[in-house]
């Protein structure tokens, strides 16, 4: 009886310590790989891109536990309004965000096939460039 109680306590401890060690999604880090003509913004809270422009991004999941996500874990953006913004896959899990129509929408954030959050996405009017020197 005493042995089985000890075993159950040990199992509970193992399960709780394992869950504490597993990475828990708390957001993503966004690295923009190209220089867009108009200034853009890419965070896990807000993405801003100009209409007619494309921003190539590399997203890395951030964990709020002591264990980080493995490099193979993918963060995928999925537009909720494909008339406003488009997302195309790129090399090495990069993604290309394209501003189609001025407005505000959200994109779903999927991590390893699970919906984790949404990110507010604004598509701004683009600024025309001046003549080249």
């Amino acid at each position: 009886m005493r042995r089985s109680l000890f075993g159950m306590l040990a199992l509970c401890g193992l399960v709780s310590s394992l869950s504490a060690c597993a990475p828990r999604y708390e957001g993503f880090r966004c690295e923009v790989l190209n220089e867009t003509p108009t200034q853009n913004l890419c965070t896990d809270q807000r993405i801003e891109i100009a209409r007619g422009e494309a921003m190539v991004v590399r997203l890395s999941p951030q964990s709020d536990s002591r264990t980080e996500f493995e490099e193979s874990v993918e963060v995928e953006l999925r537009p909720t309004d494909p008339l406003l913004v488009d997302v195309r896959p790129g090399l090495s899990d990069d993604q290309t965000i394209i501003g189609l129509t001025v407005g505000e929408t959200t994109m779903e954030v999927w991590v390893d096939g699970e919906l984790e959050s949404e990110v507010t996405t604004r598509i701004l009017e683009s600024e025309p460039s001046g003549p080249r020197d």
């Binding site: 494309a54 195309r88 896959p89 790129g90 090399l91 290309t96 025309p128």
Partner: peptide, 25 residues
């Protein structure tokens, strides 16, 4: 139309390989 648009280079796997913005005035 006036404004910018991205030219996307897509490889045979359907991935965006490179890009360039073009502008019309």
């Amino acid at each position: 139309t006036e404004g910018r648009a991205p030219l996307l280079v897509e490889n045979s796997s359907g991935e965006i390989y490179d890009l360039l913005h073009i502008e019309a005035k």
